[in-house]
Design a binder for these strands. Structure first.
Lengths: 227, 227
DNA sequence: AGCGATTAGTGTACTTGATACACTATAGCA
DNA sequence: TGCTATAGTGTATCAAGTACACTAATCGCT
């Protein structure tokens, strides 16, 4: 590995991004993991990620990884935290700018990259043994998402383009881990004025058809309090 | 500068921390800036900061810089964001893990470091021309603090060990930029049960003496809503 | 000693938002 | 046609936020 000197300080760092890609499947929050093909931690599950290239910002690297591993570009993406424990990677000093993304399960196209033997979703509360400090990174991301949905509507990016009010409610219930009252939920949600009803309904299930909705705008809003 | 290769990716990065050190003086939120002694941006004001050493985490580097520049160790410190635009530093690829700190003005011991010609506080809404992307970093930090005080009590770390209720109120008013009702403010503040009254009062001013308070605990709490 | 200036300290009524709660409606399938 | 599953809807209560004005204590000055 190379070495650099600047103002007398020795610098010998690599910079990576690690991606915590969340989606909701069967009313459960899941994370995308890849099984590592090479050492260190060969055969162990890890977050998708990779090195930041010479001419990239960390965010661009994150978007590239998201496209490579999950097959999509449009979703909520946010820088999470930079993990820089000196010994977090046995190969040397590797600093990772962790990001998290929220994507609709319907748009996920999971692909195992070149350096991965496998890739699949795991429920956040039932994770396998993880490489590096990726357990810490996921725990931090889960906490951040849990806080974020308290005061923003970012979690809506987990939804497909058309959805029912019950779909949204199921997402909140799965992340919060508790049931909420249907009438109160709808009252609050509709009072925000951010949804528009579509003329279509979801049929084909043996039950009353549900009205479909879409977002008036894709912008995210900060709310003083959500629920 | 050196170069490193890992998995075929060329890596040639330096890692720094930049510190946004906030304090409140005369009911105004201020930031500590240093005047650069050397190129690039010699003579221009900049955030204090420096390189992350080989055996340090970014947080440890931030604590070290805080001690070197502001003369204190105990205060609120949080990682803000990692800035990694490829051309943000004309010397080469320098990635900065920005942190922000909240410190009581009474404990600030401003020292111009070796590489600084001067160091002083500036009101956040009256900043000089700044080096690098430090204007962006400060703007982001101000936004973060503004949001943070909505749902946590971290801003209390701007206060000295003993303070009056009016002191706290002045800090909130200075950050929010608006007056709040004294009775409502006190009602809410005391109902949190996080303060303990001291037996002392603040006298010597030509006015009614004010009761002094201290924190029962130095822990920070998340509140659903603060004011 | 008294007065003026300055900030400290205190309670209630109203408004707004959150919560608790149960029944009817519709489609698919047997 | 009736069984099952989920959609859809309103009201009453409770908790919290907001609006609002006067008296109290000390210091310094005359």
């Amino acid at each position: 590995m190379g070495t650099k000197r600047m103002n007398g300080k020795r610098q010998d760092f690599s910079l990576t991004v690690d991606m915590v890609i969340f989606t909701v499947v069967d009313d459960t929050l899941n994370v995308l993991l890849v099984k590592r093909k090479y050492e260190p931690f060969a055969g162990i599950w890890a977050l998708p990620g990779g090195f930041v290239e010479e001419d990239e910002t960390p965010r661009e690297a994150a978007e590239r990884e998201l496209l490579e591993e999950a097959g999509l570009s449009a979703s909520y993406l946010e820088q999470l935290y930079t993990f820089g424990e000196p010994r977090r990677d046995p190969r040397g000093r590797v600093v990772s700018v962790a990001h998290f993304a929220l994507v609709p399960a319907s748009q996920l196209k999971i692909r195992a990259g070149d350096d991965a033997a496998d890739a699949r979703l795991f429920p956040v509360h039932n994770l396998p043994k993880l490489a590096f400090d990726h357990k810490d990174i996921i725990a931090y991301a889960v906490t951040r998402v849990g806080n974020k949905i308290q005061y923003t509507n970012v979690v809506w990016s987990l939804l497909p383009p058309a959805f029912t009010l019950s779909d949204i409610q199921a997402i909140y219930e799965s992340i919060w881990g508790k049931k909420v009252d249907k009438r109160n939920f709808r009252k609050k949600l509709l009072s925000l004025g951010l949804l528009k009803p579509l003329s279509r309904e979801r049929t084909g299930l043996r039950q009353r058809p549900a009205k479909l909705y879409a977002f008036k705008t894709k912008q995210f809003v900060e709310l003083r309090r959500f629920f």
